[in-house]
Design a protein around this nucleic acid. Structure first.
Lengths: 191, 191
DNA sequence: TACATCTTGGAGTGTCCGCTCCATTTCTGC
DNA sequence: GCAGAAATGGAGCGGACACTCCAAGATGTA
């Protein structure tokens, strides 16, 4: 395992290559050959630093799942606007991680281990959104707030998917419709 | 290609096995060996009926993409309630096709050919939902109706994904919040 | 500088994949 | 019932995959 400076640098280069490849060709498309070529290392160097290909892939996946959660500093105080903005920024930003996260969600449909991880992070997010809903509309019961959070997150996920498949899609404009200020019937939703 | 009765039956058995496997183990998990074992045929029989493994897989995929569209008979007359109900039924029904469809959406993030197909079917559905919105609320401009349809479909897709990952999730209850009758602030969304 | 330890590339290994090939059996129209 | 076409199973092929092994070189410590 990495102990010298060069080893640690190589490790980072490998993770970075893995991250890029995961976003571009998908979990199943990532091969050891592609990783080592992209990172410009031999297979021996790779296995000097990682126990297996999946070891590197899962490290990036863990990072992707964590990254969906907006800035933890805001927890307990952020508004719905903040949360929606953060989610939209995450999805439409240039980082490959959002793309990896959405692939993972799809993959959770057939892989129980991934499903459990995705679900856990989803529930944490629902809680955070529900809290914000109650702060915004104090009359809501907790169940109502959770239900609204669930729908809001579902919509954000779905819109995010469309945005990543269709580059011309205006996710931010569409996401605004989800905010309470748009609940009044007839307010213009911005194409 | 199949000309005799037994050949056509074998063909159906293979497609059925492929469908089941796609839902259970995912697109990348489907192997020829698994298909032929599940369908109880030899590799030679398979290739007597299909040009390649992907030939069978794509046939099932095409079917999955088509199936997301609700009953074509209703086009031009169905209400938002109808459309949401049909989508929820599709997602929560016992057919493996919904599971395949959502995997495909995720796969569209890295596969341009699949992305194009998914996007095309998505746009068709948006149009249909937008029409229903305008019928429900005649005051809406077309752009507004399309924007609402986009958000509604995004939410349905996101909720569907949660429902398929978390068997206890009440998709129908949550989906009701998306209907115009729930737009009045404070109406109970049903946990 | 001297030396132990870590790092490196890449040839080589076993496994699994999609697919071919073909001798044998089954089917169907006449 | 016969002939020609279709259907069948499975051994085997070439290639891609993750991973091993190791001789040679780079690095850090005292």
């Amino acid at each position: 395992m990495a102990r010298y400076r060069v080893g640690l640098e190589t490790r980072e280069r490998i993770l970075s290559a893995t991250r890029r490849l995961l976003a571009e060709v998908g979990i199943e498309g990532v091969t050891l050959k592609a990783i080592t070529a992209q990172a410009r290392v031999g297979a021996g160097s790779f296995y000097n630093l990682f126990a297996s290909k999946d070891d590197a892939v899962f490290e990036v996946i863990r990072e992707a799942i964590e990254a969906v959660d907006p800035d933890p500093a805001g927890a307990g105080t952020d508004t719905l606007d903040d949360l929606v903005d953060a989610f939209v920024a995450f999805m439409t930003g240039s980082s490959p991680i959002a793309r990896i996260y959405l692939q993972l969600a799809g993959r959770g449909l057939t892989d129980a281990a991934i499903a459990a991880r995705v679900l856990r992070s989803h529930r944490r997010r629902v809680e955070r959104f529900a809290d914000a809903w109650q702060r915004e509309e104090p009359g809501l019961t907790e169940a109502e707030a959770v239900a609204r959070a669930e729908v809001m997150l579902g919509a954000l996920t779905g819109l995010g998917m469309t945005a990543l498949i269709d580059p011309g899609f205006d996710m931010r404009g569409h996401a605004r419709q989800l905010l309470p200020s748009h609940r009044a019937v007839g307010s213009p939703p911005m194409g």
